Amino acid sequence: MIEFVIAVFFLLITPGPGVLTTAGIGAAFGFRAGFAFVAGLCLGGFITMMMVIAGLGAVVLAVPSLRVVLLIASVGYLIYLAFRIASAGTKIGFSPAKSPLGFTNGLLLQFINPKAYVVATTLFSGFAFMPSAPAWEITTKLLLFNAVWLPVHFIWLGFGTTLGALNLSNGVQRVINMAMAASMLIVVGVALLSLR
């Protein structure tokens, strides 16, 4: 069980579309503005986990044409988010957004977030610690996952808020935006490599 919690922590703390977007919202609009987005991410993440647990993720990925459509939608949306972050220029966050991404954006992001499916598949297909009671194992994993998931996302939201409040030079802000956008594009690259 300890190995499961450690795996959850490291899989979630690493940059992916959800945490990078959360940090960007915090930087651009503040901590409170990110609550609705994080709530959407949470519900979307729970639904994607349930899909993976139920085997629907495997069915979807088994149909090559559907997999390609989902991959194109995912890659397109992630590239769009990376562009929004990179084009913010000397202001950390999103540009030219007038309001933060909300609940619906967070919810929808999880359905096209390749990392969400990889994390769910890794965690729920491995780390068996109750082989004789699979329902209890799944329930325990869901509780432990969310006990780590929520603080990690609020840490990223706080990190983005702190960055947004600092009086950083224009050059430093531009570098941070480019690094966040590049991290998101790495996720895109990993998703594309998974097709091989």
Rank of each mutant, 00 (worst) to 15 (best):
Q110N: 09
A88I: 04
F31W: 06
K141G: 08
V19E: 02
G16R: 15
I25N: 04
T21V: 13
M49R: 08
S99F: 00
T90S: 14
M184A: 10
L66C: 06
T22N: 02
T21G: 03
I6G: 10
F154V: 02
L41I: 04
A120W: 09
P114M: 12
L185G: 14
F94P: 02
S74P: 02
L123I: 05
G164E: 08
R84E: 10
M50V: 11
L193T: 11
L78R: 12
V188P: 05
G171C: 09
N177R: 04
G76S: 05
I186C: 05
G26R: 11
V187C: 12
F124G: 07
V119A: 15
L123K: 02
P114Y: 05
L101F: 12
A88H: 07
L20F: 10
I6N: 09
G102H: 09
L144Y: 13
I53K: 09
A27Q: 01
T48K: 00
A179K: 03
R32C: 00
G34R: 00
F35H: 04
A128Q: 15
T90I: 06
R67V: 00
V175Y: 14
F29S: 05
L123V: 01
F124C: 12
L150I: 11
G34S: 06
F111H: 03
L166V: 02
G171K: 14
L107Q: 04
A62C: 03
Y80G: 13
N105I: 07
L107E: 04
H153G: 01
N105A: 15
A135D: 11
H153I: 06
P64E: 12
G30V: 00
A147S: 15
F9C: 10
A182T: 09
T139S: 14
L168H: 01
